[in-house]
Design a protein around this nucleic acid. Structure first.
Ligand SMILES: [Mn+2]
Ligand SMILES: [Mn+2]
Ligand SMILES: [Zn+2]
Ligand SMILES: [Zn+2]
Lengths: 137, 137
DNA sequence: TTTGTAGTTTATAATTATTCTAAACTACAA
DNA sequence: TTGTAGTTTAGAATAATTATAAACTACAAA
């Protein structure tokens, strides 16, 4: 799906040199069927599993931060005191399952709001995000 | 507003001994006009300001955790890698202002949803929370 | 092609938030 | 009044992240 060339372009277009490490990380993040909701820890594990290239943890931290600044990933709110990221950078919503501690994407248009309050004076709405927490039926 | 007696009852009713420290902390948290969205750090500062009783940081951590387990406060999602709490334990929504990094409560009935997706098989909806991010107009 | 340099990686140290530990203290039931 | 379980506390330990600085590398310009 994602050719190496595309990844290189993606990196170059955001002013990031396409290093061996960044290409491995980008492949892991973006060459997936489903959105990846991850921490540095889970990403590190995923990389270890797929390739035998050893990438230092510092580089993974650096790269994730760089990808975030470049807008290739976005940070998610959590209550785990860990940085948590989302490869889906479009505005969207989430199901949250406290049992598995997993998020699942909900397309933006799957939620329709009928009424929302007026923002405080001098402010306008930038984004609106819904989190639907689940439990066993 | 909140008498000492009420606080003592609140503590007793949740199986917590009404110690000097817990009463000070509870007063700080619950004897307010508006909801308090806080971290252990901001709570500690608030306590320092109000009273000259020195309470150890460990006790503040312990008490906040105890209050959370008792359901007197709830934990909020954040991207700051810090535990963040809310004295409003009712189901409600938030405005989030990235400039001031402050949350403001939105009453549950101020948001009305027209359409939400079906939960995955075997699961039902426990809670639904909306975060409206703001920006300068 | 070679070379200079800014950008990048890396091991490791430092920092920050939180939890753990164990000794001293205290609320309160008997 | 007293025994004890519950609580507070200082300080140690842990976990996640960020900072540091030396080695390495992509790549533009010569
Ligand atoms: Mn937490
Ligand atoms: Mn963060
Ligand atoms: Zn997502
Ligand atoms: Zn709130």
């Amino acid at each position: 799906m994602y050719q190496k060339k595309e990844i290189v372009n993606k990196l170059r277009s955001s002013g990031l040199r396409p290093t061996k490490q960044r290409i491995v990380i980008a492949k892991n993040l973006f060459d997936r069927k489903k959105t990846f909701h991850f921490t540095v820890e889970t990403l590190n594990i995923a990389i270890h599993r797929k390739c035998n290239e050893r990438i230092s943890l510092a580089t993974i931290y650096n790269t994730v931060e760089a990808f975030k600044r470049a807008g290739h990933i976005r940070e998610i709110l959590t209550s785990n005191n860990k940085n948590y990221y989302d490869t889906n950078i479009k505005s969207h919503h989430h199901f949250y399952d406290p049992d598995t501690k997993e998020l699942t994407d909900i397309d933006y248009q799957e939620v329709v709001l009928n009424k929302i309050p007026n923002p405080p004076k001098g402010k306008k709405i930038k984004d609106l995000e819904v989190v639907i927490s689940l439990q066993k039926k």
